[in-house]
Structure formats: structure tokens, C-alpha cells
Amino acid sequence: MRIIGPGLAAVLALGACVTPRQTDAMTGAARYADHCAACHGPGGRGDGVLAAGLPVSPADLTALSARNGGVFPWSMVMARVHGYAGRAGEMPEFGTILTGPMVSWADETGTRVETPAGLLAIARYLETIQA
């Protein structure tokens, strides 16, 4: 029988403390960095490197809850991130980028919605950066 050292045991214990929601937020942070930070900025304040050249200023994503009475607006965020074709001057359509495994998610009313896992991950990350 092999005994693991204290360092490896600590890493394994720490890994066991990460919840699926935290894992989603970490995955969402990576997706945010790849697809959102150029416009919205690394901290989500609307100050990305491309922001000045856009016809519509990117939103400050750290103020979503504040603008919604202190409640994170899940459905609005996910609809906006997913995108709609033909909305000139706003966010590009990310629907095709967010293809992949679907997960069941309960919206604010408790209705179960099949949602791309990547989309939910980005929304969970955005919830973590609220001011």
C-alpha cells in the first residue's frame, strides 16, 4: 500500500472542496477571457481594448445586479450573451460558439430550461464579478 505525502493530500483535499458551481465559474472565466474581455475588459467594466472603436459602448458587467435591484438578472444575461442575429451595433451572436453539452437550469421563476453548459458557465462567472 502506498501512502500519499502531505502535499499531495492537501491538493486532493482542496480539489474536493470545489463545488460544481465554482467549477462553472472558473470555466466561465476562461470563456469570458476568450470571447468577452476584448470589449468588456478583463474586469468586466466595459473598458476592453476594442471598446473605443465600437458604435455602442460595452456594458459594465460588474453592475448588472446593482441595475436590477441587487438581484443578478440570470435570464437577461444569458439571453444577451447567447445573442440574437441581426442586432447591429451590439454584441455578436455567440450561439454557435456556445454549442456543446446542454444542462438543465432553473430560471428565476423555477422553470427548467435546457441551456448550453458554456453559456451557464459564463453567467455564473459574471455573477461572481458583481460590485
Rank of each mutant, 00 (worst) to 15 (best):
M1N: 13
I3A: 12
I3E: 09
G5V: 09
G5H: 11
G5D: 15
P6M: 13
L8F: 15
V11H: 08
V11N: 00
V11L: 15
A13I: 04
A13W: 09
L14Q: 14
L14V: 07
G15E: 15
A16H: 11
A16D: 10
C17P: 05
V18W: 08
P20C: 13
A25N: 07
M26Q: 11
T27D: 12
A30M: 14
A33G: 10
A33L: 12
D34M: 12
H35M: 12
H35Q: 06
H35G: 00
A38T: 08
G41K: 02
P42V: 13
P42A: 14
P42K: 13
G43C: 02
G43S: 11
G44V: 01
G44T: 02
L50M: 12
A51E: 04
A51M: 01
A51G: 10
G53T: 08
G53R: 08
G53L: 03
P55M: 10
P55C: 10
V56C: 06
P58G: 07
L61T: 04
T62L: 03
L64F: 01
L64G: 00
R67T: 05
N68P: 00
G69Q: 05
G70R: 08
V71Q: 10
P73V: 00
P73L: 00
M76T: 00
M76F: 02
V77F: 06
V77H: 02
M78W: 04
A79L: 11
A79S: 14
R80S: 08
V81L: 11
G83C: 04
A85Q: 14
A85G: 10
R87K: 09
M91Q: 10
E93F: 06
F94Q: 03
T96W: 10
I97P: 00
I97E: 13
T99Q: 15
G100W: 12
M102Y: 08
W105A: 05
W105F: 15
E108L: 06
G110E: 11
G110A: 07
T111D: 09
V113D: 05
V113G: 04
V113L: 12
V113P: 05
V113A: 05
T115R: 09
A117T: 06
G118R: 05
G118H: 04
G118L: 02
L119T: 06
A121P: 03
A121T: 04
R124F: 02
Y125M: 08
L126E: 06
L126S: 05
E127C: 02
T128K: 03
T128H: 03
I129C: 07
I129H: 04
I129Q: 00
